Computed example of a mutant assay.
Amino acid sequence: MSDDAPPADNPTPSAPRKKLVSLGGLCEVVATLSLAGTWLGSLGRYHWVCDLMSHFRLQYVIACALAFLFALLRRRTWLALLALFSLLWNVHIIHAYHQTASPLPSPAAEKPLRVMTFNVLTENKNHVAAIDHVLKADADVVCLLEVDDTWQHSLEPLRVKYPHRAEELTDGHFGIACYTRLPLKSLEARRFSQWRLPTLILNLDHLGRPLTFIGTHPIPPMNNTRAQEWRDHLSAIATLVSGLQGEVIVAGDLNATPWCEGMLLLREKSGLDFHSVDPVWPPTWGLNLPMMIPIDHVLTKGGLIIQKRTIGPDAGSDHRSVLVEIVR
């Protein structure tokens, strides 16, 4: 053995210590970045990237809780306080959408109006499961998104079941179809903003009163151009609804979480709101992914209250259906 070699019973302690410090530092950086999403997401009105980050409040709750525990273990007081404050902020935002209408003091005298919206996914190969799910739900008004020409034959059972329909199937991922058993007074297909995506407007009779049903599907706001198109689309819907009198329902895949700026714009400008006894924050898209978010919605105006809201099962789409029961 060389004189320069360390003794066998005296191993060098520095290597494990350096690795531990390096791992701890990395975790601290990751925790700080995860908390940044909470606050950048609150600046959505200033930039589309910030608004995109606002969608993940549910994930931020988990990230902030983990960051808080990590900070306690590492005795990082400033990080623990920031994580706790961020956690409470996210919980506060989500809780605001836990119940957006008070339960009725007594059961409604009339039968609830059942409305379903479902993005069936253009690439969904399981047409049978998707259509069977819609048929079993037996809603009074159905709004299907992402139906194109490949769904033409599969939609036939709905055409048989419902006496009235409106279909725009030639727009690929933005095809839309609505079916209803309510008396139909008139229907119209509108195309808003630059991309000219279809929105269906059905003027119905609901128990002797006029009801306007609007089914729509704006583009996902995944870059600057698309984010502006998305906002323009939602703004156009808001302008349309603000000029309508009486009862209005807007339903569809809005590519908007309840707390993002686009949704706030739609609600403030139109007079629409969730008016739901049940929470509207449970995810409807990406339920098999860690980034699951609630982007499929039904909003009302004119004294309509959603007394029950149900998210459907897996039917081959990356979305789940939303079925609501609406009363006056």
Rank of each mutant, 00 (worst) to 15 (best):
S2N: 10
P6Q: 06
A15K: 00
V29I: 15
V30I: 15
G37N: 11
T38N: 15
R45N: 05
Y46V: 09
W48A: 12
V49T: 08
C50Y: 11
L52Y: 10
H55S: 12
L69E: 03
F70V: 02
L72G: 09
T77W: 08
A80H: 06
L84V: 02
A108V: 01
R114D: 00
V115H: 01
V115L: 13
M116L: 15
T122C: 08
K125C: 02
D132V: 00
A139T: 12
E146D: 14
W151A: 09
L158T: 07
V160F: 03
A166Y: 01
A166Q: 13
L169P: 01
Y179I: 05
S186L: 06
S193L: 05
T199G: 07
D205G: 07
L207G: 12
I214H: 05
N223A: 10
R231V: 11
G246D: 07
I249A: 07
G252C: 06
L254M: 05
W259G: 05
E261L: 02
L264V: 04
L264C: 08
L264R: 15
L266V: 04
K269L: 10
F274N: 08
H275K: 14
H275E: 13
P279L: 04
T284I: 08
W285T: 11
L289N: 15
P290Q: 11
M292F: 12
I295E: 01
V298E: 09
L299S: 02
L304I: 01
L304S: 03
A315P: 06
A315V: 08
G316A: 08
S317W: 01
I326G: 06
R328I: 01
